[in-house]
Design a protein around this nucleic acid. Structure first.
Lengths: 156, 156
DNA sequence: TCGATTTCGTTAACGTGTTAAATATATGAG
DNA sequence: CTCATATATTTAACACGTTAACGAAATCGA
């Protein structure tokens, strides 16, 4: 009969946020974390972070890319990208040079050492992703990607 | 006829990761970011971070909670939580005391000042979320939440 | 009871996220 | 051409994410 009184009882429900368990931000966080849990140990064995992997992977796909384009494709904010580029360059995985036509721009290119990392990591990455796809369902992944894209583009 | 040669041409496709555009980790990141873009400015006006908001919101919902339980519910790693708790306590939004029955545990409770923040932020948060729900579609949000939950629990 | 083990929380160290401001270069109006 | 403005990148400052290691308290088995 006498239940525990929580602070929630002090206000009426309208003043409280909806339940945490069904909140989009946290659900997205959990899902992302669950996915990354599959990749992170493998990337750690190759001594690169998730973000560093995104950057060199994009350079391997797209060739020479300037920093803004990279920030866009890898979805990394400019200040983070500056640090990541510095670190990747110091480790010899990428090269960096000023754009001759526009002195503000920084052009990035993958270095041979970076290609070696790509060659090492890609097969493992693929395998993990395909296992995930299989277990979740190939078509469901597609549906989910579409729904996420739509959510991401609600603002535009 | 002579197209630009990219580093991708140096290896055959099997060695390259699949296209960045349809990758679950980045799609989840983008979607989450798009959602948070709606909330962050509002939270900033109230001078709290997203994580601080999650913590006091959970305390308002659940009453007294120990740190492990909080880490679980708010999906925040222990080291981050330690810092967040320290900051929230210094600002007088929560109180913290050792569990009498188990000296290792730290019990958290929301303070009156914290309840004031809840009262201020909740209506705005709700409004933003409901707008989002409406624009994306109420049922589609539910479907998405289910799909995300399932993805998150693939490991178990 | 005691020593080994486990659990909870913290600290440390490093990388990234976020916002604002600074710097350098490019562009456009007059 | 020149000054104002815009754009690309960097720096700074602070918060959080991530892993490993640590200290303290609880638990369990001998």
């Amino acid at each position: 009969m006498s239940r525990e009184k929580t602070p929630a009882d002090l206000g009426h429900d309208a003043l409280l946020p909806h339940n945490t368990r069904r909140s989009l931000p946290i659900a997205l966080l959990r899902a992302r974390e669950a996915v990354m849990a599959h990749f992170r140990p493998m990337l750690a064995r190759h001594d690169i972070t998730e973000q560093q992997w995104r950057v060199i992977r994009i350079l391997a796909e797209a060739g020479r890319v300037d920093a803004s384009e990279m920030a866009d494709k890898a979805f990394i904010l400019a200040p983070s990208l500056t640090r990541i580029i510095r670190s990747l360059e110091e480790r010899g995985l990428i090269t960096k040079h000023k754009d001759a036509d526009d002195g503000r721009r920084v052009l990035l290119e993958i270095a041979p050492e970076g290609m070696r990392v790509i060659a090492d990591v890609s097969p493992e990455s693929r395998a993990i992703y395909e296992d995930l796809e299989t277990r979740y369902g190939r078509e469901r992944v597609e549906v989910l990607l579409d729904m996420l894209d739509e959510l991401a583009s609600l603002n535009d």
